[in-house]
């Protein structure tokens, strides 16, 4: 996919669908395409969280390092998903690893710029936060069910 095509698909990303046209336009001014090769890190636990990713193709694994056990996969994200909310909350540090499983393409926002937009326009911030909370709530629910070990 060309950068142009990635940007063209911007408005149709599931995360942005619920935002108003006006807010989408505002966000579009700061978005950049990104690509990650298999194995490449999008985020590393403990490091500064400087980006917010929207995945358009490929898969990203969220995981944590177990020391002697290698990296434990926790969750797999794919097209339509977003990576990360650590960028939104102090101390702006990734809590988990996010690593490309295959070739990943999508869009990325600079975290500082995005925070700035939200501070300047609380209405945008409110809607963005609501969207992010929807993601967080979905992942929390999924995690809770996973924790129940329902297939045992």
């Amino acid at each position: 996919m060309t950068d142009l095509a990635l940007l063209g698909a911007f408005a149709s990303h599931a995360f942005l669908e619920a935002l108003s046209e006006q807010h989408r336009m505002r966000l579009a001014s700061g978005v950049n395409p990104f690509r990650a090769a298999p194995g490449e890190y999008l985020a590393r636990e403990g490091e500064p969280a400087q980006a917010f990713y929207l995945i358009q193709s490929g898969h990203v694994g969220i995981g944590t390092h177990l020391g002697k056990g290698g990296t434990a996969p926790i969750q797999t994200l794919g097209p339509g998903d977003v990576v990360g909310w650590s960028w939104l909350l102090p101390p702006y540090q990734w809590q988990f690893d996010a690593r490309a499983i295959d070739s990943v393409q999508g869009l990325v926002f600079d975290a500082a710029w995005l925070r700035d937009q939200c501070e300047q326009d609380h209405e945008l911030g409110y809607h963005l936060l609501k969207q992010l909370l929807t993601v967080v709530s979905g992942r929390l629910a999924a995690c809770r069910i996973q924790q129940l070990d329902i297939y045992k």
Partner: peptide
């Protein structure tokens, strides 16, 4: 998941968008 598992990890409902 396991370190050697290349497929998705998560609840089956999370596969819907894919």
């Amino acid at each position: 998941g396991s370190p050697s598992w290349r497929g998705p990890v998560g609840l089956v409902t999370e596969l819907f968008p894919r």
